[in-house]
């Protein structure tokens, strides 16, 4: 019983990284129609930036949680303005290739500068150790990651459903042409939305820094799972990305616990089953498929 609770928390904690990053990926896809292949690299950049700032200016984890996403937002805005926007009018394939190329470039630049062995990162004292719930002990950091990312997801959901900005973004995501026809300047929102999506990936990266190896390659396998997550959730669906993120985390954890060798395959089996039964994903609309 103990173990099952532990596996659940571990799965949800792992799912938190997927949910946050997939949320960014889904928003970007929704508004821009761009499949951002560089999302894994942005996750990596978030972690690397946190580690570098800690090393250079002693910036602690809490400050990094705020500062790094802001930096990543600026990076995303520049990326969209300078590169992505030039290709949006063309076949989506061009932006796919652009972001794929960018991710290779970013990974290699980080390798060149910092090597492949990874960068050290110290956790804040308060998040070390374990929390005891009854006779179950849960690593404090995992619980923190879970709660924190749930709050962020909730915040994004409120932003999307309760504010005018959110309404416009959702409308642009789901019925871009119609929104335009109603006189909303969709293109004004494209750049900040792209930046916001990148910032979420960066935030996931900062959260991963104390807990995972900070290496140039950390985003490479992450992005593959991330694509599975957005496909399961439904491309462009915001709720779908979050739900599928946590779901995949759970599937991975229980897979690891009960069928270790199959733990990664299970995720893709789940993806295949979802596509078979609901081709547009759990929360996707058929017409988007």
């Amino acid at each position: 019983m103990n173990e099952i609770l532990q596996y659940t928390v571990q799965g949800l904690a792992a799912g938190s990284f997927y949910a946050l990053a997939a949320l960014g990926l889904a928003i970007i896809f929704g508004v821009l129609g761009v499949v951002n292949f560089a999302h894994g690299a942005c996750y990596m950049l978030g972690a690397v930036t946190a580690a570098v700032l800690l090393d250079l200016v002693g910036m602690n984890f809490w400050v990094a949680l705020l500062v790094v996403p802001v930096l990543m937002f600026v990076f995303g805005v520049l990326l969209e303005r300078l590169l992505v926007s030039r290709l949006t009018a063309l076949d989506p394939l061009y932006n796919f290739l652009l972001t794929f190329g960018l991710s290779l470039l970013l990974v290699d630049l980080v390798k060149r500068q910092y090597g492949v062995s990874g960068l050290p990162y110290t956790r804040p004292e308060i998040l070390t150790g374990q929390l005891s719930v009854g006779d179950v002990r849960l690593p404090t950091y995992q619980v923190f990651v879970l709660v924190f990312s749930l709050l962020v997801c909730l915040g994004v959901w409120l932003l999307m459903t309760r504010t005018r900005i959110g309404m416009i973004v959702r409308a642009s995501t789901e019925k871009s042409e119609l929104t335009r026809a109603l006189g909303v300047d969709v293109s004004r929102w494209v750049t900040p939305v792209f930046g916001f999506g990148i910032a979420l990936a960066g935030l996931a990266g900062v959260l991963a820094a104390p807990f995972r190896a900070i290496t140039a390659d950390m985003g490479s396998s992450f992005i593959i799972i991330l694509f599975a997550v957005v496909v399961i959730g439904g491309l462009g669906s915001i709720v779908g990305a979050v739900v599928a993120g946590f779901l995949v985390g759970l599937v991975e954890a229980f897979g690891q616990a009960y069928a270790p060798t199959l733990s990664q395959i299970v995720i893709f089996v789940l993806m295949a089953v979802v596509i078979l039964i609901r081709p547009a994903g759990l929360f996707g609309r058929e017409e988007n498929a």
């Binding site: 596996y7 571990q10 904690a13 995972r212 396998s221 270790p260 733990s263």
Partner: peptide, 20 residues
């Protein structure tokens, strides 16, 4: 003897299982 995927970034469950 717990087999894990390679490469892999999440070992928490494997560790819990081993420690149990």
């Amino acid at each position: 003897h717990i087999a894990t995927p390679f490469p892999n970034d999440n070992f928490t469950t494997f560790l819990t299982k081993a420690a149990s």
